[in-house]
Each structure stands twice: as C-alpha cells, then as structure tokens.
C-alpha cells in the first residue's frame, strides 16, 4: 500500500484509537474525575460498562441506518421508475418538509405511539433517518445526465441493468452523503433515546444530569463525541473514493 493510501485513514484511525482508549481507559482516570466532582460518592459511571453501552449504541444506529437506507433508496428507485412516477412529487416534498421537524420531537412523539424502550427509539431513528437518504437518492438519480441513460438503453441494457450498472453507481456518492447526514443525526438522537428507555451512551449523561454528577456527564459526552467523529471520518473516507458529484453532472 502506498503512503497516500494510508493518509486517508489517518483521521478515522486517530478517532477510533481515541474512542477505544476512552472506552476502556476512562475508569482508570478516577483521580482526574474526582477533581470535577470532589463531593460525589462515585465519579466513574458504573451502572453499565462503557463498552457495553458503546456496542448497544452502535447496534441501534446501525440497525436504523440499514432500515433507513433500504427504505429510502428503495422508495427513491420506485418513484423514479415510469410506473411509480406519479408519487415522485409527493415523495420529494415529504422528504424536504419532513426534515423541518426536529428529530427530538419525532423521538418524543414515538412514545405515545409505541411506549418506552428500544423499539420506539429505533422507530424514530428509522423514520427520521429515511428523509435525508430519500432526498439525496432522489437528487442523485435525478441528477444523472439524460444522455447517459439514453446511451445505456441504446446499447441494449435492460431496465435492471441500467439501474444497477449505471444509475446506482453514478448516484452512489450523493446517496452516501445522505446516509452520512442520516447517521450523524441518528447518533445524536440515539443518545437522547436514553430518556425514553433505550440503553445507549446517553445513559451516563442523563444519569449525571439527574443526579447532579458532572463527571458522569463528561464521560458520556466524551464517548458520544468520539463515536460521532469516528463514524463521520469513516464516511468521509468512503465518500472520497466514490465518483464525485462532478462525475454525475458531466455524465
């Protein structure tokens, strides 16, 4: 592997290293946290292990992301085929109007509908996470130069071949950008999911706020921040290797 290849991995690896170090190293820093909260009985959050919370948080976000990608890209494909085109204006409007709703309001409203726990959190994450993906998928599929599709059909590709070999690869960069937005929002929203009974890295923060223990808050906040930066830098790495928007515009 060349040096420049490794350059791209610098940030993701740095953040990942810090995240893992914090996950396993925070309990070692008791003396430091004691300085923040001299009066508290315990200064290291211990109701659950940080690694367990990290895994739960990641699983929740990953499950929501998979469902949101399937739903968002699937819907975008459907409404951009000739037989689904009637629904295109509605879908694109819903994608843009839906994004005006704050994610925390969607999360809160999932509770009256579905009760407390992981399920309503997952539901809210999927529901909200679909929107940026749907919007970008529509933009990506729509942004392909008609001449390219014409050429693909002219060479005898079937509609499925056009979709898989031309449309999706060309739209991939924009779709990944939408997924990045979606996942970034969902990491943040999942943290707030702690308040409705999902077990995530938000737990130490909520517990710290309720009990007035700033040390807990800092521990949770550090881990969530590092998780977000790790995932975001990974997305950036992936995006850099895909055909950019220029390729779509130029066809």
């Amino acid at each position: 592997m060349t040096a420049s290849h490794w350059q791209g991995w610098r940030w993701p690896l740095l953040w990942l290293g810090l995240l893992l170090a914090a996950t396993f190293g925070l309990p070692q820093l008791e003396a430091g946290f004691r300085a923040i909260e001299p009066g508290a009985r315990a200064v290291i959050y211990s109701q659950a292990s940080f690694s367990g919370l990290l895994v739960k948080h990641l699983l929740l976000v990953a499950a929501a992301a998979c469902a949101a990608v399937a739903l968002g890209v699937g819907t975008a494909i459907m409404v951009s085929r000739p037989w689904g085109r009637d629904f295109l204006p509605l879908a694109s409007q819903v994608a843009s109007i839906g994004q005006t709703f704050p994610p925390v309001a969607v999360l809160a409203l999932a509770v009256p509908a579905l009760g407390f726990g992981v399920l309503p959190t997952l539901f809210a994450l999927v529901l909200y996470g679909v929107l940026p993906i749907l919007r970008n998928s529509l933009a990506g599929l729509h942004g392909i130069a008609p001449a390219v599709l014409e050429a693909a059909r002219g060479m005898g590709m079937s509609p499925w071949q056009v979709l898989w070999q031309v449309e999706l690869p060309l739209a991939s960069a924009v779709i990944v950008a939408g997924s990045r937005t979606s996942v970034t929002i969902n990491i943040a929203t999942a943290a707030i999911g702690s308040t409705i009974g999902a077990s995530t890295l938000g737990d130490p923060i909520i517990s710290g706020l309720v009990n007035g223990n700033s040390a807990y808050v800092v521990q949770g906040a550090l881990l969530i921040g590092l998780l977000a930066l790790t995932v975001d830098s990974l997305f950036e790495r992936v995006q850099n290797r895909l055909p950019g928007p220029a390729a779509v515009a130029l066809g």
Partner: peptide, 17 residues
Amino acid sequence: SVIQTIPSLALFGLLIA
C-alpha cells in the same frame, strides 16, 4: 464541521464543567 458532528447532548454536557 467537527463541532457540527458532535451530538448535541454531548456538547451540552461538555460545556457544563
């Protein structure tokens, strides 16, 4: 953009101390 990436709950929390 790094700030924008940090979840709100975390940033609020980090500012408390």
